[in-house]
């Protein structure tokens, strides 16, 4: 009956050198709906498709603010994500309390990386069944990181995880060179277009199933830069952006940009 003798725990290698529990956890990430993240020189955005389990239910949250300068997008088990989210929140608060500054994004990501890795090397533990995209700004500018249940973390220019995310990644790869110099509106549109690639045939982006989050650095009048806090947009707030990437709106992006700006206020 046993198909596989090496997947009962996360401490046993298979003869091929694989740890199946960790690979299964990576599969759980692919069960979650797709999330896309892109970073430019000035901004990092996260966009996500929210799912509702049934018509009567609400839509599942996909984007979470962690601290004023960081937020995450999740794909996989929401409850596991909440554990990581709470942990990150605590670390950021603690860091701010002891040093009076935003926690460097890489430091934060390394911490969840180490935390997740422990679960892959101890008997009786289970890897996190969730993948994250972490977007944030620090003194080095905007960052986007990918996090996997294996504990792997990597800085990305743009990335997508979750169900059918390969199509979104193909879009991102095609437009890779454009991202660095994108403004925030352009970056969001790229994100939403990548998201659309991953949609099932007859599904559309709607104000109910789309979430957008932005974090960035803005030039001040005196030439210095100031972080623009991580903010999540849902519902009516994202309608202008959705319209601007609608199939028939491609022709007139200029007006769409104007509408997109209004949403910010």
């Amino acid at each position: 009956m046993f198909r596989n003798n090496y997947d009962n725990d996360s401490v046993t290698f298979s003869p091929q050198g694989r740890i199946f529990q960790v690979e299964y956890a990576a599969e759980a990430v692919k069960q979650g709906s797709v999330v896309v993240g892109i970073a430019s020189k000035t901004h990092a955005v996260l966009v996500a498709i929210k799912r509702n389990a049934e018509e009567l239910s609400s839509y599942q949250k996909k984007l979470f603010p962690i601290d004023e300068h960081v937020g995450i997008a999740i794909a996989g088990l929401t409850s596991d994500a909440r554990v990581l989210s709470n942990f990150m929140k605590q670390q950021c608060l603690g860091h701010r309390l002891t040093y009076g500054r935003n926690m460097p994004v890489r430091t934060l990501v390394d911490m969840i990386g180490s935390k997740a890795q422990i679960n892959t090397q101890h008997y009786g533990k289970r890897p996190y069944g969730v993948g994250l995209l972490v977007a944030g700004v620090d003194d080095h500018g905007p960052h986007l990181f990918e996090f996997q249940p294996s504990g792997m973390t990597e800085e990305m220019v743009a990335f997508a995880i979750g169900a059918r995310s390969q199509m979104a990644r193909t879009y991102l790869e095609k437009n890779l060179d454009a991202f660095a110099d994108c403004g925030r509106e352009e970056l969001i549109r790229h994100g939403l277009k990548a998201l659309k690639e991953s949609l099932v045939q007859d599904r559309e982006l709607t104000i109910d199933n789309t979430s957008v989050a932005i974090v960035g650095v803005e030039k001040q009048e005196d030439g210095t830069t100031k972080p623009q806090p991580f903010k999540v947009y849902d519902g009516q707030d994202v309608s202008a952006w959705i319209e601007s990437v609608a199939d028939n709106a491609e022709a007139a992006p200029a007006t769409a940009e104007g509408e997109g700006m209004d949403v910010d206020s």
Binding site: Y99, G100, R101, P104, R106, T107, D138, D139, H140
Partner: peptide
């Protein structure tokens, strides 16, 4: 924390 960069950005300043 950031061995790649030799700038002071991201390092603890006097206020920190």
């Amino acid at each position: 924390e950031d061995p790649s960069s030799d700038s002071k950005a991201g390092q603890l300043n006097a206020a920190n």
